[in-house]
Amino acid sequence: MASDIALEISDWSVGYLDHPIVRDFSAIFAIGSVTSLIGGNGAGKSTLLKSIFGLNKHFSGKLVFEGKAVEGLSSAARLRSGIGIVPQGRCNFPQMSVHENLEMGAYLLPRAKASAAIESVTELFPMLRRKWRQLAGNLSGGEQQILETAMVLENSPRLLLLDEPSLGLSPRMQAEVFETVNSIRGKGVTVIMAEQNVFGSLMISDRAIVLELGRKFADGPARDVMHDPRIKAAFLGGEPVVETADI
């Protein structure tokens, strides 16, 4: 019987240079699930996402994707194996056209598959076809976000890591981003997302993991986490919670 586990992370410690940022993190992610990573600045959300794609230093722990250990693989090999990431901030080639960026998105694909992949993402995001010859650096923030997502989707990832996909976007564009994430999930893709719009993110997530100072602080169904008074107070603008134990 096929396993329904997409990703298993055990005792994961990662960071930069000699400094682990995320420590002893463990979690299992089901195929087709959407998980929100929640936490303040410096909690380790981006570090965790980047580490799954191999973009920072791995100190210890195991990373098993679809039953295979991938912690020793390069980023290129992880992309080939089905893991894709859209990092926070601008992650395109600003002095190249939209078309050239999409060509680079399909860098690992054979020529025939690359054309089909470009065709497929331009059907999903018709804006890209309209801006075909425009330099990526001249697109609006929302358009660049769409381009970057499209570049990763060209590789048909089965695990998609999204770091602040709605950062700096208008409310209308944010809604479009969440709609896109929902449609990607509909295709059986597992999504792990760090998002500053915690409410919007939890609304489309099955599960939420709260990070604090690089460690897992809470983990549960998104709806439960959304109604947790401590989370509401910290991230959703709810009333501050007075811990009776502290009184």
Binding site: F53, L55, S75, A76, L79, R80, G84, I85, V86, P87, R90, C91, N92, F93, P94, Q95, M96, E100, M104, G105, A106, Y107, L108, E148, M151, V152, N155
Partner: peptide
Amino acid sequence: ALSQNREAALVVG
């Protein structure tokens, strides 16, 4: 591409 954005180059493999 690599001369313009190294992280993006890694992201596309």
